[in-house]
Amino acid sequence: MALSKEDFDKLAVLSRLRFSPEEAEEFRNEMDDIIAFADTINNAVSGGTDDIKNTSVNAVAYTALREDAVRESLPNEKILSNVDGSRGFFNVKRCVK
């Protein structure tokens, strides 16, 4: 299924990615091929509508849950060590004017 320009623009917003008009066109064409490839699962013999309704998507079994207990946190200064954290927060430029 070809990806319309409108749909591509919506996906870009959902993905928080921005493309120039030329880039968007190039990406959209490439995505057409990739989606056509993904579409080949619809040639599979199994996995019809009833299966879709009745099957859980959890392929991985999560069995080991640890006790819901408070544990020591990482120190604030370590968490902030990768950014400007001079006031004890994740600082960004002023955005409310």
Partner: peptide, 17 residues
């Protein structure tokens, strides 16, 4: 995304099983 989830992601999970 809504509208494609069943046709792609969920179907892929079924085939994975």
């Amino acid at each position: 995304s809504s509208g494609y989830y069943d046709a792609y992601y969920k179907k892929a999970c079924i085939l994975r099983n």
